[in-house]
Design a protein around this nucleic acid. Structure first.
Lengths: 212, 212, 212, 212
DNA sequence: CATGAATGAGAGTTCATTCAT
DNA sequence: AATGAATGAACTCTCATTCAT
């Protein structure tokens, strides 16, 4: 008689769905993720996903919203306390790197979305990504105004930063497997710490901005 | 009475399938591409896809093999004639950039595959990508040996190059739409030519490698 | 507007699927039965078959499980009340015969499965068949112990019994058609009652077991 | 330039197709056998099967025709020289047994066909089977006329003979696997020679026909 | 809020068969 | 006589989604 009634806690259930959805979407992609699998993963009835998120796309939107807000919050919090443009830039890159490393679904989802100009979520991706880039762009502008940075192409620099950091994170398993297989030593950074990489990227960007 | 009799030319049919598959895979992703749609796109019976490529994965492998060989050939041909490490590096970056721009499926497919460490094609992606990176890495080493380049982290630099170039290409539509919508001017390079960007990336990487 | 809403009764739906599957599998064989046809036959959506039985093989297993249990139950119920080995043997044969006649899918399915050593369901067929044969074999042994039966080859006798009864049932339509067509009288038992045949088989087996 | 042109020997090709078809039909059944697989098995182009046999059913007919003629010939040859009804019956049973054992596709195909009254080949199966049964029936009649056999039900006796022999052959692998797995000894004749079984069946039938 | 039964469309794949060479 | 390319229908199975309870 007593059926396994679930939590009856709307917010908790929603959160559980989103969390498991993040994992699945980031590993299998949007089309490759099935609602059936997701419902099993989070132990909730399949219909509940539609009850809370209307449809698959709605859930995906919630997922992307979530992770883009997370990374944005993580960066703005750290940056607020920084003074100089130089330090702010360093903070931006290092925070992004360590966040991407500890939340590897971010690079996976971001690269997937960006790889087709956000075929699934054009507008939302656009506004969210825009905010993050605006932050980066502002730092560069401040540096220019302060006379510590050269004139630059912010968009390209931004992509150099997040492109390299994202790829370093997503290809980690690939590179480690390669390291075990490879005869000759091709330096693939298979054992590098994210801190060292973030640091290296930072100094590279600064070298570019400071010029000869 | 007149059935849609097809060309009866194996190589032509295979090529047609691969070409249309490239388009679909790069825009919709692996899971999002349907063999039905593909067969309609290339005007061939669905069964022919399986006749030639055994299954969906087999076709995808053929597609990736194709484009990775293309870009590798494009780069090695141009590089062979270059002399100094510096010029070779410039050639690498500019060739990659212009190829990616004229064959925009390359960045799309590459980013998708790299975004989950090649979930679909682990080994093949690995070997093919490895060859391209080895080329890049060799140039850096030669530069070091010749004393014109500083010591560096080749993997990170490589990802800075292809990360930025790929993202510039794939986000082009997104950025152009943004430019029309945006009130304030955020420099998103929506009108930049790929030559200028490749040139900028090149000089940035050289700045990094040449140091202060 | 009025969609074909179904009963929403799990056990009823499952039963309906199994019942119609029995008919189809027994007439068309495993490979010859299509899930599409089955779904139409039982008025349920095709997906429901997979919802309840996972896949075609799973359904087939359920079907075989069902009918083998049925015949086993039918026989054991009747036999339990019998006293002597002789009567038990008679009960076994006659029950099997009348059951096979009133449930003609049993011989059809059994012969098909046995005709290739259970290519589809090796283990299950094995255990289920084994139980039935063990019953038969036990009766013979008891008869031997009691001194009323001669030593015999139980497996061969068993196959003589179920072989003949099954074939009589499955070839019934064939033999009746033959009777109409045939000029000369070939005694094909086209009008025989199953009771007479079971009786004849019983007395034959007893003749064998009692010896000269 | 020189393509692998095949034998160009019509009868040889046809024979090869039939031989391989026998194997496949007997193991996988009619519906379970694919023309693709068959063409690969016999190394001939798929279209040739249709060139020679019109369609799948036509090939199946040829296959059944072939094996039913084989067994009929094998038996009639041996029987012609026999004198008494008793010896003829013995010859019938033993020849059938040894042929079935050395050509195990016969029992497999026969049981499959008989299990649904020849759904695929009603008429042909009917005439061919009829001939074999007529042979058996004639022997019994002669025995009756000679006063050595009791009155009997030929159809049932016939099915007891071929039912048991066919099942013994087709279930051999099943019974051998069972023997290895089984803890307690259930006499499944897993190691019996066909000669012993044929002999046992013969003496059983004779016991029936000679009566008390 | 939660469940499991139900659905229709479409997925990838295989089929028997035909046609041009 | 023989081949490989082509076809359309059918196959098993999965999908996102809805409905009754």
């Amino acid at each position: 008689m007593t059926k396994k009634i679930h939590k009856r806690d709307a917010t908790a259930s929603k959160k559980s769905i989103v969390q498991h959805a993040i994992t699945l979407f980031s590993t299998r992609g949007y089309a490759g993720t099935s609602m059936d699998e997701l419902s099993k993963a989070c132990g909730l009835n399949k219909a509940m996903i539609f009850y809370y998120f209307k449809n698959k796309k709605g859930l995906y939107e919630a997922v992307m919203e979530e992770i883009l807000q997370e990374i944005y919050k993580a960066i703005t919090q750290k940056i607020s306390s920084s003074k100089s443009a130089e330090v702010q830039l360093e903070t931006f890159i290092k925070t992004y790197g360590s966040f991407a490393c500890s939340h590897p679904y971010l690079p996976a989802l971001l690269l997937k979305e960006l790889s087709d100009s956000g075929a699934v979520l054009p507008e939302q991706l656009f506004t969210s990504m825009r905010k993050l880039f605006a932050l980066f762009s502002d730092i560069l502008k401040r540096g220019e105004d302060e006379g510590v940075f050269q004139k630059s192409m912010p968009m390209v620099l931004y992509f150099m930063v997040i492109g390299s950091l994202n790829l370093i994170v997503t290809t980690k398993p690939l590179r480690q497997k390669a390291a075990n297989l490879d005869d000759i030593a091709l330096e693939t950074c298979s054992e590098c710490e994210i801190e060292d990489i973030s640091h290296y990227v930072t100094s590279n960007i600064l070298a570019i901005l400071k010029g000869a």
